[in-house]
Design a protein around this nucleic acid. Structure first.
Length: 297
DNA sequence: CGTCTTTGACCTGCGC
DNA sequence: GCGCAGGTCAAAGACG
């Protein structure tokens, strides 16, 4: 993707702060809450070892960490000190933390909730004591190890339970500073499909890691449903084709019209829908499995 | 023909 | 060690 130098200006401070507040707001419609709170779980093999550290750092998302993540993503190219901030976070072992975010999504249609990323289904399993199978998806981006699991709720037939896991590394890696003083270059021609290669590359990418708060941002903005920009909308082509968070978030922030759509998307699409009606799902079907209008409950 | 989905087999972790 | 359940792999088929 090629945004030139413009992208760094896409998110102004106010927008960032607003997004941060949204991230921390339990009432935010952007968050799917399982019984009112984001389910956050540290799942690394070093979980016990790092618990004490985590308890300091991850007793909850701290606003400065989220700000770190946001500012690191948006500004480091222009502000060398961002490199220091990233390194500081990495030194705090933030990169070793992975998180799962379980979302309950009320489906308005036939199933999958679009979240702005392309996913490749790699498995499906029947779950014991559950009538509904669970589907496993990986991000199609070869530099990304993000995964999600989707299953229907046992209690509510029209509710999907989506568990996000891992990182959308293709979202952050263009913003990480070059290693070993090598010239940093974003691979604009990175292939988007070749799962086998993706495994090794994502393994390499894990060395970068990501602060947990960035994952929270990811989990949140996944729900923002950038797919709204796909067809019939004057959004950058890169968004439509890749749905990358780095493109989508600033773009959405800058496009109030789509913010309205997103907001309406965060409420029930049933009879309680009082805002502008959603675009026809068929017009958004850049991935055939997705119902682009999930409702977060 | 390339890509994606399906689905059975295999792997792994965990509890007993 | 064994069995179970969840997670992943990969061959085969479907689809555009």
């Amino acid at each position: 993707m090629e945004e030139g130098g413009e992208k760094d200006d896409w998110v102004d401070d106010d927008s960032q702060e607003e997004l941060v507040r949204e991230l921390l707001d339990e009432e935010s419609p952007f968050f799917v809450l399982s019984q009112g709170t984001i389910q956050h779980k540290a799942i690394t093999s070093e979980e016990e070892v790092s618990k004490q550290r985590v308890s300091n750092v991850y007793s909850g998302p701290r606003i400065e960490d989220i700000e770190n993540a946001l500012s690191s993503v948006s500004n480091w190219k222009d502000q060398p000190q961002q490199t220091t901030r990233i390194n500081s976070m990495l030194e705090r072992n933030l990169s070793k933390i992975e998180s799962k975010y379980t979302l309950k999504v009320r489906s308005c249609g036939n199933g999958m909730a679009a979240d702005g990323y392309k996913w490749r289904k790699y498995g499906q399993k029947s779950i014991k004591n559950s009538p509904n199978p669970r589907s496993y998806y990986k991000c199609t981006n070869p530099r990304c190890n993000a995964k999600k699991q989707v299953e229907k709720s046992r209690d509510e037939a029209d509710t999907l339970i989506i568990t996000y896991e891992g990182l959308h590394l293709h979202f952050v890696d263009p913003y990480f500073p070059p290693l070993n003083d090598q010239p940093f270059q974003h691979d604009n021609n990175a292939p988007t499909k070749k799962p086998k290669k993706a495994i090794s590359e994502s393994d390499e990418s894990r060395a970068f890691g990501l602060p947990q708060t960035t994952q929270i941002q990811e989990a949140t903005t996944n729900n923002i449903n950038p797919a709204v920009s796909l067809e019939g909308c004057p959004c950058p082509q890169e968004i439509a084709s890749e749905g990358l968070l780095e493109d989508v978030v600033p773009w959405i922030i800058r496009n109030p019209f789509h913010n309205n759509i997103i907001s309406s998307n965060s409420t029930s699409c049933s009879s309680s829908q009082t805002r502008s009606p959603p675009v026809s799902p068929s017009s958004l079907s850049w991935s055939p499995n997705y119902n682009p209008w999930p409702v977060f409950i």
